[in-house]
Simulated assay, not measured.
Amino acid sequence: MEKLAASSLPMPTTIIADAGFDSEENYVYAVGDEKEPRFEFLIPYGTSVQEQTRKYKKDIQNAKNWTYCEEEDCFLQLKI
């Protein structure tokens, strides 16, 4: 991106990348130093494709599938 910015070519307004570019460094670069995005970006995180599968969504060992109970300040493991 820095090489592109240094050239005379126009900068894209939206960057689309695959999960291989999922890194804190890339996100920080896209957001910019002043926390105002340099450009819009669509970069899925590493497990986003896996999380869309039926097997992942039904896995009761996965904490993302648990429900938070605010009254008791705990997570409930529900069978799906």
Score class of each variant (00 low, 15 high):
Lys57Gln: 15
Ile80Phe: 15
Glu51Met: 10
Pro10Thr: 11
Ala19Phe: 08
Glu72Phe: 07
Phe75Glu: 09
Ser48Thr: 10
Asp18Glu: 13
Cys74Met: 12
Ser48Gln: 14
Glu34Cys: 13
Thr14Pro: 03
Leu42Cys: 00
Ser23Leu: 12
Ser8Val: 04
Ala5Lys: 09
Asn65Trp: 03
Ile60Trp: 02
Pro12Gln: 07
Leu42Thr: 00
Thr47Arg: 11
Phe21Ser: 12
Thr13Ile: 11
Asp73Leu: 05
Glu25Ser: 03
Lys57Trp: 10
Tyr45Glu: 08
Ala17Arg: 10
Ala5Cys: 05
Cys74His: 10
Ile43Gln: 00
Leu42Gln: 00
Phe21Trp: 14
Lys64Trp: 11
Ile43Asp: 00
Arg38Ala: 01
Ala19Ile: 07
Ile15Trp: 00
Phe39Ala: 03
Phe21Asn: 04
Val28His: 00
Glu34Gly: 12
Glu2Asn: 15
Thr14Lys: 03
Glu34Tyr: 14
Lys64Val: 10
Glu24Asn: 12
Val28Asn: 01
Met11Cys: 05
Cys69Gly: 09
Cys69Ala: 13
Ser7Cys: 02
Asn62Phe: 08
Leu4Gly: 04
Glu36Phe: 02
Leu4Ala: 03
Gly46Ile: 07
Tyr45Gln: 09
Lys3Gly: 14
Pro44Thr: 09
Glu25Ala: 05
Ala5Leu: 07
Val31Arg: 11
Glu51Leu: 03
Ala17Tyr: 02
Arg38Tyr: 02
Lys58Gly: 12
Glu70Asn: 12
Asp33Ile: 06
Asp59Phe: 04
Gly32Thr: 02
Lys55Phe: 10
Arg38Pro: 01
Met11Arg: 02
Ala63Met: 12
Lys79Pro: 11
Ala63Thr: 08
Glu36Gly: 01
Pro44Ile: 11
Phe41Cys: 00
Asn26Arg: 02
Lys3Cys: 12
Ser48Ala: 13
Leu76Ser: 07
Leu9Ser: 05
Glu70Met: 09
Thr47Met: 06
Met1Ile: 04
Glu71Gln: 07
Pro12Lys: 02
Lys58Thr: 12
Lys35Asn: 02
Tyr29Phe: 12
Leu4Arg: 08
Ser23Cys: 14
Tyr27Thr: 05
Pro44Leu: 14
Tyr27Asp: 08
Arg54Trp: 13
Thr47Phe: 09
Glu72His: 06
Glu25Asp: 03
Ile15Lys: 00
Glu24Ile: 06
Asn62Gln: 13
Ala30Ser: 04
Phe41Tyr: 01
Phe21Lys: 06
Arg54His: 12
Asp33Phe: 11
Gln61Leu: 13
Glu2Val: 13
Leu76Val: 10
Tyr68Leu: 04
Ala63Val: 06
Thr14Arg: 04
Lys57Cys: 14
Gln50Ala: 14
Ile80Asp: 15
Ser7Glu: 05
Thr13Glu: 15
Phe21Arg: 06
